[in-house]
Design a binder for these strands. Structure first.
Lengths: 334, 334
DNA sequence: TTGAAAGCGCTACCAA
DNA sequence: TTGGTAGCGCTTTCAA
């Protein structure tokens, strides 16, 4: 590998001149500039990233850490969407992405303290995430995806699940529905993350405001559980005419259970799904959706992290929202 | 952040002594060792990764690059399994993982030339992958997952698809089956990767050796395509009594199509699937499987890369195999 | 507009 | 068994 002094020698200039040509932090005469750039091209010179980080005043490595859940029950599609958005956005900020798994809790300290990364994006944050104190004490910018109880000095990005539920209920209430069910996940990880509770709170709040009767039921992602879930909702409220489903994995089972029972969407039942993109795709019957903007969340997280790494901005909580998209899943209550 | 000289001062020793205590490359008296380690603990000292890489003779950064396909039609489950195995194994070798996407072709050169990474693991290699010349000219150890036509100086890890097919055919032939069908994917990316062809070659070879009649048919992952595929196979060979399926996404559709047609597995038809772990899970009827050891491939790739980074080993091609697991998917031909 | 040189934090050599 | 110090490849002052 050619070094900067190889370039300097080849171009017949000093080492610092090469550095300034490359960084643009000093005005350079055109002939010199050309000679240097020619030498760079000739030698195929690329500055050593480590040396650059070590010498620079900012001490930046141009690498951000991304902590992802890679365990079995993580939603691989959602994780992939995040990863794609984060890497893409990072590149736009001249940064690369170092991957850390959630299991490697020592990794947070390691990559941060050894100056491998300039900052971290951490997925899958629980309401009372045990990593919060550690992350807060790292002394590096951190952006959490999720909304923990304590956010002292940490930036957070999340979807506004409460607003999504209010939007869904409002949409259905305007169509004349007065009795609406909510289906949520029964898995504990979803509840530890807190968004199920926030969604339910929004659901209940808007229902109360609109004078809508409610039923709530959790569901497992199987055909049998879907049938049980529907039966449970009907037992609570025989007059249900609409459903808000916050459970991507159970959605297809619910839809086909309804189909088997001769319940037609939207004629007999209106259905709004809250979930990641694609969750409602490929369903035999269309439903309305409030999409969790996973990619957007990843993008915003990196933007916030970049800003904080550059010393701009302060820790803040950003809750993203997205509109309800009607695609034939809802109809006026009859 | 505390530096090594902070530690030296605090411990009342020289800078080099601290370095030697930490690296263990010199024998140190017990009292000195203790004083240094105490100072390290007291100050929370962690060596700067960049400075260490810069100064060390080996010039190693302790980071390996992982190039993954993140585009829509990549199998997210398989990619995740790779990523998990690679990160886990890398950690066992004291390395971290930098993530690069397949789209970022300039990234190969960037992370390698700027010494961000010590080497690369590249997934999803096509038979005539356009990146091969670039990768070969990088001047850093590279391990490919896949088997390109030209492997000059590059290490490769892949599953022995030909052997898997031979194993499946052999198993079925021993059970007395004399007419066996092969279902493969029709997607072009699978064929560019070459393993579909290798599997088919092994299938035909073993069939010829065992005097087995064959039918081959590609299939799309839909219920309709599965029915068409089965009809096509029967048209070629009305006497088919066994199937080898090399198409994870189509497998459930094939199985349920068979179920609808009253074809019972294994009584009426024996079925062996070749695919990643879990592909045959959750099927209404059990099938036999030859599992593509995705995690193992990732593990081996990192082991090979680590060895090459340490200067050990040479470029080699390793084809992994795995046994056929019977789980009630096959029975003697009647 | 340019060059010289002092570090960045560390490793590893040369001495003692 | 230890210390001093010359770099690793770069950025950024200070001087010209």
């Amino acid at each position: 590998m050619a070094t900067i002094s190889d370039v300097a020698r080849s171009a017949g200039v000093s080492l610092s001149t090469v550095s300034y040509v490359l960084s643009g932090k000093r005005s350079i005469s055109e002939p010199t500039r050309t000679r240097v750039l020619d030498a760079v091209a000739l030698l195929g010179y690329r500055p050593n990233a480590g040396a650059r980080a070590l010498a620079s005043a900012s001490n930046r490595t141009g690498v951000i850490g991304l902590v992802v859940p890679l365990h079995e029950d993580a939603d691989v599609n959602v994780v992939m969407q995040f990863v794609r958005a984060v890497t893409t956005t990072a590149r736009r900020h001249e940064a690369d992405v170092l991957l850390l798994t959630q299991e490697d809790s020592a990794g947070l300290e390691r990559v941060t303290a050894t100056a491998l990364v300039d900052g971290l994006v951490v997925l899958d944050i629980a309401v009372d995430d045990p990593r919060i104190p550690l992350l807060a004490g790292l002394g590096r910018p951190v952006v959490l995806i999720g909304l923990p109880r304590e956010t002292q000095g940490l930036s957070c990005v999340d979807f506004d699940f409460a607003l999504a539920a209010r939007t869904a209920v409002d949409h259905l209430a305007r169509l004349g529905h007065t009795s609406i069910g909510l289906v949520s996940s029964s898995t504990s990880s979803v509840h530890q993350a807190g968004y199920a509770d926030r969604l339910q709170a929004g659901f209940l709040e808007q229902a109360a405001a609109a004078g809508v009767r409610v039923a709530t039921q959790s569901c497992d992602p199987t055909a049998a559980a879907a049938r049980t879930c529907l039966a449970g909702l009907r037992a609570q409220r025989p007059d249900l005419t609409a459903l808000v489903v916050h459970h991507e994995a159970a959605l297809p089972h619910l839809v086909s259970a309804l189909g088997e029972q001769g319940v037609r969407i939207p004629r007999d039942l209106s259905l709004v799904s809250v979930g990641a993109a694609g969750a409602a795709a490929g369903l035999p019957q269309p439903v309305d959706v409030v999409e969790v903007p996973v990619g957007e969340m990843g993008r915003v997280a990196v933007e916030m992290l970049s800003a904080r790494i550059s010393g701009a901005g302060t820790a803040e909580v950003r809750l993203l929202s997205s509109p309800l998209v009607t695609q034939g899943g809802s109809a006026p209550a009859s």
